[in-house]
Design a binder for these strands. Structure first.
Length: 436
DNA sequence: CCTGATGCGTC
DNA sequence: GTCGGAC
DNA sequence: GTCCGACGACGCATCAGG
């Protein structure tokens, strides 16, 4: 697909606010994209180059883009900056300057542009800022002003077209509700929207299975402050403590001792960041497993939980040994998504927990969240108070028979916290005994 | 080496 | 993480 | 209710330049 054609679609999408309309336009765009580049069309339309878990980052944002524009259009940085202050958007600045200079497009395709952006992302090390700016400026010099409007917004993360993955899925389904469910299910276990778009085109959706090393889209909790409403919406529930740490998915395969770690946003974390997980296989009684957990720092004597700011210091690349001994981590495990080649996504929660309890050795590095099963709002309220008193964030309440549904849709997981804005105001450590 | 600017990612 | 707008 | 985008606090990583 020609970039100019692509830009026409983006312009139409930008002008449209109704999501039904957006979905229709996207369906047309996807229909016009062939198998070889539908993934790139999808990535670029969402302002991305690859799924998060591949860690492809441009490292070129607002300030460097302004430098890029100055260089590309041979203007002073001060002039570009003042234009930007006026317009508030790098895309409009690029388009305006491009129109003034009557920049002609060089017939680039979406694939061409994608590959040039990827090259910028892959550059790094000494002198890379200048090279990134140079490559980006060269690209801008080869595309028409309307395309420049959108392409320049991609690195700064401000495409602002009013749709995201969910809408792309709806567009791929093209009004077929059954297909939409299938695409969504596939996306949730292979959260690579470009890849999924390709599969839809090829009619190969049914080949998607959970995989060790590929993150599953995380299940999230709605917020609700009434325990009676919880019971009304969910019936029998499992009530668990809510820890103030980092959401961490642990993937383990015994055969080759493969250990992969992912965050809530499906970003990959280097195993050296959490060296204690190098031995995780000792505590998992399975050949393969995907665990869902909250990582939380504890004081070296393992008597107290640390607050969030202290815990997050463990997400660093340098001085790991020192930090790791000062801030030991423990992993509060609360779900098992996959075991020994079998997906548990469609199993009810209590069933997953039952298998989890047999699979994970509880205590030490991995600790299974304690839980109370109830349908009594007062019991939930009491537990909430209990956990708050212990210095925890509150409770997570889960529908006893709920499946693992990615995202925040529906009423399967609900959280209840205390007040807003208390984060960061806590003392260094929280005075309570570590449980598990 | 150190410092500041910039970019990124967590909640 | 929260909030508010558009649907 | 759902989806999207704007926003904030905080702290680390990376690079440029002295």
């Amino acid at each position: 697909m020609r970039l100019t054609r692509f830009a026409e679609f983006l312009e139409k999408l930008e002008k449209t606010s109704s999501r039904i309309e957006i979905t229709k336009i996207l369906t047309n765009l996807l229909n016009e994209s062939d198998q070889s580049e539908i993934d790139k069309v999808v990535y670029l339309s969402l302002g991305m180059l690859a799924p998060n878990y591949q860690g492809t980052i441009l490292n070129l944002a607002e300030k460097m883009m302004l430098r890029t524009l100055a260089y590309a259009y041979q203007k002073d940085l001060t002039e570009v900056t003042s234009l930007y202050k006026k317009e508030g958007d790098v895309g409009l600045v690029a388009q305006e300057l491009g129109e003034r200079l009557k920049v002609k497009d060089k017939n680039l395709t979406v694939t061409d542009v994608y590959e040039k952006l990827l090259a910028i992302a892959e550059d790094g090390g000494g002198g890379s800022q200048e090279r990134k700016v140079g490559k980006m400026a060269k690209l801008i010099g080869e595309i028409d002003p309307l395309s420049a409007r959108f392409i320049t917004r991609i690195p700064v993360g401000k495409l602002r077209l009013g749709f995201s993955e969910k809408t792309v899925i709806a567009a791929l389904a093209a009004q077929d509700p059954k297909l939409e469910k299938e695409i969504e299910a596939a996306y949730n276990i292979r959260p690579d929207i470009g890849y999924i778009a390709g599969l839809v085109k090829e009619n190969k959706l049914d080949t998607v299975e959970p995989e060790i090393g590929v993150p599953v889209a995380p299940m999230l909790a709605q917020r609700l402050n009434s325990t009676s409403e919880m019971v009304k919406k969910m019936g029998e529930v499992s009530v668990e403590p809510k820890f103030d740490g980092l959401r961490i998915f642990i993937h383990y395969r015994r055969k080759d001792n493969l250990i992969k770690i992912f965050t809530r946003n499906m970003n990959s974390i280097d195993i050296d960041t959490f060296p204690e997980l190098k031995e995780v296989g000792k505590f998992i009684h399975a050949d393969e497993a995907i665990l869902d957990s909250e990582a939380i720092g504890v004081d070296p004597k393992r008597e107290m939980f640390l607050d969030f700011q202290k815990t997050i210091q463990r997400r660093r690349k340098h001085d790991i040994g020192k930090t790791a001994s000062e801030i030991p981590l423990q992993f509060q495990i609360f779900d098992l998504i996959y075991i020994n080649g079998k997906s548990l996504i469609n199993e009810p929660y209590l069933k997953r927990r039952e298998i989890l309890e047999k699979t994970v050795q509880n205590g030490g590095l991995l600790r299974i969240d304690e839980n109370v099963i109830t349908d009594n709002p007062d019991v939930i309220k009491d537990l909430h108070q209990k956990y708050l008193k212990m210095g925890l964030e509150g409770v997570v309440v889960k529908r006893a028979n709920g499946t693992y549904v990615s995202g925040r849709t529906g009423w399967n997981w609900v959280k209840m916290k205390e007040v807003e804005g208390t984060r960061g105001k806590l003392s260094d450590t929280i005075d309570c005994v570590v449980m598990g």
